[in-house]
Design a protein around this nucleic acid. Structure first.
Lengths: 352, 352
DNA sequence: GGCCTGTTTGCAACCGGTTGCATATGGTCG
DNA sequence: CGACCATATGCAACCGGTTGCAAACAGGCC
């Protein structure tokens, strides 16, 4: 058990100690641990052996002090209840780790003063800040416009803010594609379920959706809202809608701003005994969307591509420019179908 | 727009620059920013003004170098697909932030070599490591037993590892309570749906469950397994079970290792047209459990209390001791009820 | 062997703070 | 008014690395 004969005497092992043991100077030790440095193979070997024997690990903080690079990226998150956040977090941290960066998780959920937190992150000398689909508050916008020396990238939101690089989905096209899908299914009264952030940014997605309807001579039939991206609020939005709207005036189909709201809405329909009576489409394609219980038609962003592009922007310290908009892909399941088409019909067999 | 007249000339602002402007030495600046330090009110004021004017923020890395405290806690996570992980992450980061600490998120999902990643975290001089319900791999155990100078705390798992402080739920009692609930409901053939980690640790929860059954002269009727804590695997486990087990031999009730598996199982029952035929109980009480569609009876850990205790252990650098086991609370909804009790019955009105 | 060139290595200085110690400053009291 | 004490501030040294520069060294070639 006592492997710690040499190492671990109170303090941590420093490069000087390794140097002494290897019979070289501490500068040579530093070079041994610096990839492209000029050092003889012989010396490197001896240093590595000594380091191994003593259990030496370079202090990355000390290194950062001179290199001015910390390899730390602040990852800013606010909607923990949304499974898509989780997927983003997973993808982002994995991608960062692969590039030798670590993520500092900054949680700006409601009680937290986001401006203060970003300030603290800056003191930790983060190399950049990555906003994972967060709602951009006043605080954040102010921070962004003031401190333009730390690169800022925002994922999956198209609110343009000075100094923030946007990497997102081609929202307009996605909205249009979903409208066409629903129209093709025969729906005519189409609505939209908006989340809390829709007010600030006139979502291109909604524009694309609405515009396509208008191209077909239709107007957006109703807009519901949820005050947070959570299951319960999707449920409630649909529940209230059903309460206040007589059956014959109801929508044919509802496009929801994301999957967790869509699933809430589906659950409300189920609860009201109206399964399949109102077509639903979501967005994000979270894992639960594929569940046989929901078979939610959704739009799948290419998460890896988005994250990859974002990280490239951060690490190359590119100057923020036009939004990078990547394509996604529609995942067609069952929830978007018209009520009658739940019965087997020939309708889908179009002439080719 | 150009607020950056003074600040921001290439390099970042240092304490020396603030000192010059305030007409004091850089040491005085340092003291101005150190809470309990000996400094006159007058000097502090001047320093603060100068700092404000220049946009100075102390470099916390440099500070950490001398103080040997980084205020960084490594938060280790592996099961991103489980909503409970998200809840833990949210609670943990918020609690840490409130205590002035920041979280470095370490993602040890399958492809990642966890030993290496922990090693890197150590080089960043994290003040401690918090394992959020992760499955303890060989790598991690080795790391834990070798490096006992960085405090390690494990949440929600009771696998005892040398040098790791455990903070979890009173699993044995919880298992027993759930068994009693199901027995009280009239169920007699009770099963357990285990997750991937059950093999390693003979879960006290399962022990408590089984033991209570035995106290009533019953044996555990079946054990199903899911190879990962994900909805699809809970679904599959139940699906396969239904396939291979004739109706008359099936379980009355199934206790699932967590909610996401339980919900998968419920969905599989629904898909098979067996809604309500098999009682289900989960664990963790995730948000979706409360959905009117599931009404999943579950066990709610006191997340805040667990996280709070864990962080206290970390920050006080306490020597790891006996596991800290906190009580949780059974959340009784509908999914645990017997099939016939879905019809209104007098059964619940026990004589008082 | 002497000279030239290219590679290694040691050194001083620095990154941006903190801390113990010594000195200066101001206020109180006899 | 001087002694005394508490409080403030400056200074040197240090935390654990990196980097430009110059000296040392080795090998190749004539």
């Amino acid at each position: 058990m006592n492997i710690r004969s040499d190492r671990d005497q109170g303090r941590k092992v420093t490069s000087a100690q390794v140097a002494e043991r290897a019979g070289v100077s501490k500068w040579t030790v530093s070079r041994a641990f610096t990839p492209g440095a000029s050092i003889s193979e012989n010396a490197r070997q001896r240093v590595m052996e000594a380091a191994e024997a003593l259990g030496y690990r370079p202090n990355l903080l000390a290194r950062s002090l001179t290199t001015r690079r910390t390899q730390l990226i602040g990852v800013v998150v606010d909607q923990f209840a949304n499974p898509h956040t989780q997927a983003m977090l997973n993808a982002a941290t994995l991608a960062l780790q692969q590039r030798g960066q670590l993520s500092i998780l900054l949680n700006i959920s409601p009680p937290v003063r986001s401006g203060e937190l970003l300030d603290i992150a800056e003191r930790f000398q983060v190399d950049g800040l990555l906003f994972l689909g967060t709602v951009l508050s006043e605080d954040i916008v102010r921070f962004a416009t003031e401190r333009q020396h730390v690169p800022l990238v925002q994922l999956f939101r198209t609110t343009e803010v000075d100094g923030v690089q946007i990497v997102a989905i081609q929202e307009h096209a996605a909205g249009a594609e979903i409208a066409r899908l629903l129209l093709g299914e025969g729906h005519r009264r189409l609505g939209y379920l908006a989340g809390p952030d829709s007010g600030r940014s006139r979502l291109p997605r909604l524009d694309g959706y609405r515009q396509t309807l208008e191209d077909h001579g239709l107007a957006l039939a109703a807009t519901l809202t949820a005050t947070d991206y959570r299951h319960a609020l999707g449920y409630q939005a649909m529940h209230d809608y059903l309460q206040r709207t007589p059956a014959q005036q109801r929508l044919d189909a509802l496009f929801c701003e994301n999957d967790i709201l869509a699933i809430g809405a589906l659950d409300a329909l189920h609860q009201a005994g109206l399964d399949g009576q109102l077509a639903i489409v979501g967005f994000d394609d979270i894992e639960l969307a594929a569940s046989p219980r929901y078979r939610l038609t959704s739009y799948q962003p290419n998460l890896d591509a988005v994250v990859d592009s974002a990280i490239t922007h951060l690490l190359d310290r590119r100057i923020p420019g036009d939004p990078t908009l990547l394509p996604g892909r529609l995942v067609v399941r069952d929830s978007h179908r018209a009520a009658q088409s739940l019965l087997p019909q020939a309708r889908h067999d179009k002439p080719r």
